[in-house]
Write a protein that binds this DNA or RNA. Structure first.
Lengths: 334, 334
DNA sequence: CTGTTAGCGCTTTCAT
DNA sequence: ATGAAAGCGCTAACAG
């Protein structure tokens, strides 16, 4: 492997001069500079990032750590990447399988030191575990759980989004709206927040809510949602709307509804959350709360860059607004 | 930052002993070992990966470099991750935007040296550019382009998959099958291979192919596919089947078909390629060629691990088999 | 089994 | 404007 010393020898200068040319730190005389560049070209030299990192304490790399590479996170990552690159840094993705242990590991000293900053999408970690993390590395937490105050945090307006979607279906005549994938327990903060939105929409319309309509979905896959929906239908539960906690869940539900001969939106209205790319195209078009990837990405990267540039300030807790995108799966749709 | 020397002092041993305890390289006496571990705990020490990397020349990290984090690649990545982890290494994802320049950069000396191995999904690079890459780092290329012989390479049986899907629709009565997103030019190897499969299915059934039915789709998004499909319909082209080059393209097509009042599969049969998770659930279920993520992931990781373990052997070029998954969008479906 | 010595490739600091 | 020396934190190799 060709190293800086090789370039220096080739150009007849010291290593330090090569370093200065490459990093443009200290002005270097033009002829010297040209000789160095020629040597770099000739030898095909490239800096050893590990060595630079050890000495300079900087990797120019940011990690986005997500529960899985699928769907929502894939779309978010594609939004984050250009923003990080615009700041002259590199983005890499890591995956935790929504597993608390692996999320903690992502925040371990060992991992943090190899990145200039970390965006961590939390799925498994709770307040207590997060509270134990002590680090001065730039970190921004993403996602719908509560986090200790001293962390920067970006989340979605879950409750408001769920309220919008539910209110929209109520407005168009739905009276028994399933809260599919929603929850009552603190362990599922997102599912609980969205259930609260679903409730508030009812109250705002002067309607009662039936807790029996809150139906959890095991692992938030389309398959679980499909199976759950089939059971609900088989059980004979009466409903004329479905608010699905995510678009992936909505898709599973749609499949079950269609298979059971229920027409969407005539017999049952359906709305999801996330507004995945696909939701626009799945007939009849899935009405969905847009998860505002762009807003989340910009807010998170902004917060991270502020820390990486050293102008920290107190931790912020941002709630990104969401909006409803109406499509054919609800009666207001085209 | 607490370092190894701090632990050594605390435990009253040398740095080397700490290193040996932590890496379990050389047996260490139990009492010493216990003292070291106690010191590690007490100080909250964690190894500096950068320093280890610089000295040991190993990062225990593999990069999967993909054009985008979306859909197909997200699913593939979720398949690759556990295999890499089973080998005691870490997987990170990087993204190239399907851009030749960024793909070359992923293969640059600088990036390669920070990983023990790289899985590169090529989208933009051609033979000529790839031929210039000279490295001894373990690399496996993924994807549907031709690559220089000396690279390990895993690809799908594109032609055979396209043939299966097309033959299935012919068998069920389709006679004018659009090859949506397929191509004739060498720049789109995958789209061209799949077109060849579409042709061969016709020939095998004793049918002529109409080249006018090969309709390219700009950027392989659902949106482009939707727009293209609308145009084809508006133009009055007669067709009774659509072979879409990917499921994402199939989804866009489905949306346009339904919007135009064409019934799937009664008026038009539809098949895609990739068998994305969603394809099963999108009513009426999209018949699709399964892209065999698992097979691709296993083959690629196997080839990579062979190289990383030093038992190299000549480069292999694997073609992973595919199979057709029949669903409601074709007449053979449930 | 434990410790000493050397050095991975680079950048910081300070001298020229 | 350029260079020499020192050392980031760790591990390979060898000595005791």
């Amino acid at each position: 492997m060709v190293k800086m010393a090789d370039v220096a020898r080739e150009a007849g200068v010291s290593v330090m001069t090569v370093s200065n040319v490459l990093n443009e730190r200290i002005p270097v005389g033009e002829p010297t500079r040209a000789r160095v560049m020629a040597a770099v070209e000739a030898l095909g030299y490239e800096v050893n990032l590990t060595a630079r990192n050890l000495r300079a304490g900087r990797t120019d790399t940011v990690a986005l750590v997500v529960p899985s590479f699928h769907d929502y996170f894939g779309e978010l990552a594609d939004e984050v990447a250009p923003l990080i690159e615009a700041g002259g840094r590199h983005l890499v993705l890591e995956r935790t399988s929504a597993n608390a242990e692996q999320e903690m590991e992502a925040l371990s000293v060992a991992r943090l030191q190899i990145y200039d900053g970390v965006l961590l999408s939390i799925a498994g970690l709770d307040l207590e575990l997060l509270g134990r993390v002590r680090t001065t590395k730039p970190i921004v937490l993403l996602g719908e759980r509560d986090v200790p105050d001293h962390f920067n945090h970006v989340r979605l307006a879950n409750e408001s989004g769920a309220r919008l979607a539910t209110a929209h279906m109520i407005e168009h005549g739905a009276r028994r709206i399933l809260a599919l994938g929603c929850a009552f327990d603190a362990a599922h903060v997102m599912a609980t927040d969205r259930r609260v939105g679903w409730e508030r929409a009812h109250h705002a319309a002067g309607l009662e809510v039936d807790p029996a309509l809150v139906v959890p979905v095991g692992d938030y896959t389309s398959l679980s949602a499909y199976e759950t929906m089939r059971e609900v239908i088989a059980r004979g539960t009466a409903f004329d709307g479905v608010f699905a906690v995510t678009d992936i869940v909505a898709l599973g539900a749609l499949s079950a509804l269609v298979e059971s001969g229920l027409r969407v939106p005539v017999d049952v209205q359906l709305a999801g959350f996330d507004n995945l790319d696909m939701s626009r195209f799945i007939p009849p078009g899935i009405t969905s709360v847009d998860a505002n990837h762009k807003g989340v990405a910009e807010a998170a990267v902004g917060l991270l860059q502020r820390q990486m540039e050293g102008r920290a300030g107190p931790a912020e807790h941002l709630v990104e607004p969401v909006r409803l995108v109406v499509r054919g799966s609800t009666r207001g749709g085209a």
